[in-house]
Design a protein around this nucleic acid. Structure first.
Length: 511
RNA sequence: GCCGCGUUGGUCAAGGGGUUAAGACGCAUCCCUUUCACGGAUGAAUCACGGGUUCGAUUCCCGUACGCGGUACCA
């Protein structure tokens, strides 16, 4: 029987969750759901000193906002828990010891100073970073060089030590990657990576292998930056559980800075003033707030859509995908091999498209919230829905609904007088005086009847209707922008329209 | 330095021995609308370089260059 598909994502709770991270989660999720498998979240809080309290909840909320809730996680639980690394310490120790017994790993007692001494001693211009490997390990203070008695003594005395993998000398490790195909590495170039740290925590190398085995992971997706350490993981699988049990690997391309080169970092968000994280993230180190896509006014559908097609496409011209369609059409083979620069303009375009796609009902909660954040409490739901439909084509980000629609709720406080004053005259003034009475007596108040009345009166007065529309717009909106002016007037209602016309007429009269 | 991975317009990208080398974002011009958008049309702009293989390479092979990643008791 085929094993059930199980994928996992293991973020570090130290640095938030930026674009690349969310995209990795997304691809994990799409693949799992496509195969009716499980998507699990494991928290990589191996480095206790940098651990950020509350980070798990942050990550979880991010995933929830994106619609990527895991089936198993530290917050949710599941059959293969615990899911938090710090709660699995004993398990890792046990496997590390097993490797030592099998001669595949060894205790090392070198202090940080000794390590540094070794590195500076062997450092040359050709080899700027000497490794702890098959060449140098015979010069170090480890169980390979110490007598068994000495090692026992040190261990018994509680001497600080790590467990390192003993990398074989002349082997070729082959790895099949679902995106890149076969990749091979020469083990002589690998170093004896620490598997288990002096503080009792595993490194990622040990943890990823042990957890993937114990949690029955079938497919592992991670960033490209992991490719160089993949052979270590293959070796661990070989020594511990058998290479045939190893999950399928997919190393995802990186998301690059919008300008220049290099991996996108949170600093870029601050520097460029663009969101980098799904949700606002306060950097614990600097205390700086990095704006999120959510808070910038992105719809989760747009954010997920944009991320999904940054490095993947289904070969057609389609660009807009709802989640269900992404699940149906996603394929690992079509993920790009090269990194992609993040383009904020395009991201906004996706949001714009999604705003146009959603119904007024779907948009309503977001818009209502945006209005409330500006101190405008919406009591008339039906009215707001009407306004949403009227202005949404010109909204790229959710806050645009406020700037584009606020005049429906509040009379303009100032007018763009320069737009009308130069051409203002007594005839136009008279027109509007009459228009007030004419429209005031209209049986039906809507865009159609208003426009008809307006044009009729203009014709009677022998003034071009077009020349009068701009002044009317300024009266109602204050600015030159917005939806068709009679639509605005129709929505505003009789009383409010007349009030606003009178208001400006009065101001104009004074100057 | 070494190892690994990459390289199609400014950006995201389709394509994959013979094509006018799709499409999208952005940009420009025009149309629509006497507003701003939306929408529509048009345009400028691309196969990193050098060798092979071939009747023919953007496509296949080999180099080179460039970029990125890794080279930690970080993930």
């Amino acid at each position: 029987m085929e094993k059930k598909i199980r994928v996992r994502f293991a973020p570090s709770p130290t640095g938030g969750l930026h674009l690349g991270g969310v995209r990795t989660v997304l691809y994990n999720y799409l693949f799992a759901k496509q195969h009716r498998g499980d998507f699990i979240l494991r928290i990589e809080d191996t480095d206790q000193s940098r651990y950020v309290p509350g980070a798990e909840a942050y990550i979880y909320e991010t995933l929830k906002w994106c619609g990527l809730e895991p089936d198993e996680s530290p917050l949710r639980g599941g059959p293969f828990g615990p899911y938090r690394q710090s709660e699995r310490k004993k398990i890792y120790r046990q496997y590390a010891e097993q490797l030592v017994k099998a001669g595949r790993a060894y205790y090392a007692f070198d202090t940080t100073e000794e390590l540094e001494a070794m590195r500076s001693k062997y450092k040359t211009p050709e080899n700027p970073s000497p490794q702890y490997d098959y060449r140098s390990r015979s010069n170090m203070r480890n169980a390979l060089n110490l007598s068994p008695e000495e090692t026992e003594k040190l261990l018994a005395a509680g001497t600080a030590h790590v467990i390192r993998i003993k990398i074989p000398e002349n082997e070729t490790v082959k790895l099949y990657d679902m995106i890149r195909g076969e990749i091979s590495f020469d083990t002589s170039l690998l170093d004896d990576k620490v598997l288990f740290k002096a503080d009792g925590m595993p490194t990622y190398h040990l943890a990823v292998v042990v957890d993937d085995h114990l949690m029955q992971i079938t497919h592992a997706f991670r960033g490209e930056e992991w490719l160089p350490s993949a052979p270590v993981h293959v070796l661990l699988w070989r020594y511990l559980f058998g290479e045939d049990q190893m999950p399928m690997w997919a190393h995802l391309p990186l998301i690059l800075k919008p300008d220049g080169n290099g991996k996108l970092s949170k600093r870029d968000g601050i520097r460029l003033g663009i969101p980098i994280f799904a949700m606002n993230w306060k950097d614990p180190a600097s205390g700086e707030m990095i704006t999120g896509f959510r808070e910038s006014g992105f719809l989760p559908q747009a954010f997920v859509n944009m991320l999904a097609v940054l490095g993947w496409n289904d070969g057609t011209e389609q660009e807009l995908y709802p989640m269900q369609e992404l699940i149906a059409k996603f394929s690992i083979e079509r993920i790009h091999k090269a990194g992609a620069k993040f383009n904020y303009e395009k991201a906004k375009w996706f949001n714009h498209e999604w705003i146009k796609k959603l119904t007024a009902e779907e948009l309503f909660p977001y818009v209502k919230k945006a209005f409330e954040e500006k101190g405008l409490v919406v009591s008339d739901t039906r009215f707001l829905m009407k306004i949403i439909l009227l202005v949404r084509d010109r909204c790229t980000l959710i806050p645009d609904f406020y700037t584009q629609g606020k005049f429906f709720f509040e009379a303009p406080k100032q007018w763009d007088l320069n737009a009308i004053q130069p051409k203002w005259n007594e005839y136009k003034n008279a027109f509007f005086m009459d228009y007030i009475t004419r429209s005031g007596s209209l049986a039906e108040w809507n865009a159609g009847t208003l426009e008809a009345a307006f044009r009729e009166l203009a014709a009677e007065k022998n003034i071009k209707a077009g020349e009068l529309q701009l002044p009317l717009r300024i009266m109602l909106v204050g600015e030159k922008t917005g939806p068709p002016v009679f639509e605005i007037s129709g929505s505003l209602g009789r009383e409010e329209t007349i009030k606003r016309i009178e208001n400006l007429l009065e101001t104009l009269g004074k100057s």
